[in-house]
Nucleic acid binder design. Sequence first.
DNA 1: AATGTAAATGCGAATCATTCGCATTTAGTA
DNA 2: TACTAAATGCGAATGATTCGCATTTACATT
Lengths: 148, 148
Amino acid sequence: MSKRTMQRDQIELHQRGMKNTKQRNMVYHVLKQSESPLTADDIFSELQRQSCHISLSTVYRVLELFTDRGLIIKTTLLLQNKAVYEFINKDQTHYLICMHCHRNIPIEYCPVHEIEEDLVRKTQFKIIGHRLDIYGFCPECQKKMDKE
Amino acid sequence: MSKRTMQRDQIELHQRGMKNTKQRNMVYHVLKQSESPLTADDIFSELQRQSCHISLSTVYRVLELFTDRGLIIKTTLLLQNKAVYEFINKDQTHYLICMHCHRNIPIEYCPVHEIEEDLVRKTQFKIIGHRLDIYGFCPECQKKMDKE
DNA sequence: AATGTAAATGCGAATCATTCGCATTTAGTA
DNA sequence: TACTAAATGCGAATGATTCGCATTTACATT
């Protein structure tokens, strides 16, 4: 990781009122470099792989901090009992999920932007992200269930 | 619970290819009578309160079954590490959630219906419900965080 | 640059939601 | 009424997450 990158992150953490520590930077980077949401344990393992020392409890504590500061969001995947974390961005991908086989299909179009402006005006919230899951049955499972 | 109600539920369970058991009916009714999503333990406790015997593992097993059959959905509340279950309905309420104080504000308008028809055509899914959470900071927390 | 202090971390134990194995019971059918 | 596969109860096991406390660290101040 370059010195310049390091410095940029320090500024980002400080701006949000967080102390800058080695561990926080490590977690930050693992999340930043991932394309998909990660569990606490994913992050812990990846850091071990990189020979970076951190304790699992610290990973959890850092994730909680980042979540409270609105840097990342914590959600869960359907049918998994563990939390996943990812950077918040305004163009979150959404999913169509089959309730039976639990297949996930990404949805391109996002209908949320249209109502955002209106919500901001009404609630004074500062909106930083959102999540949309649509539930149903895929064609295959519909067939399977009809047979039963 | 009236005999007529009992019978209606039996038909509903059978139609979806499920055996009708005392325990399934009990869980079904607790969910049906609740306005808000419930955890497995909520359901277990409510049934104990009613002096209805059921084991907690059975509650979990019934909830999993109902989920796979598309009767209910399993989701999680922000910042809680346990699943909640509720009947699926097409007019799910959505929430605006403050990342800092975890306050939930219900949103009236739902932007999902508009894209549903299009999704069905493209994917052949049978859509039965959806969930939308919007993340942000409430006005109070924005102020608090500026001061820090 | 050295110091002081509140905050952050590491470690292991504790907690709590959820799942599993297996013996027993039950729903639905013949 | 009897049969059989499926459902349940119970308690133990699992696995994610949190907590307590001793140690270390960031960073503001001298």
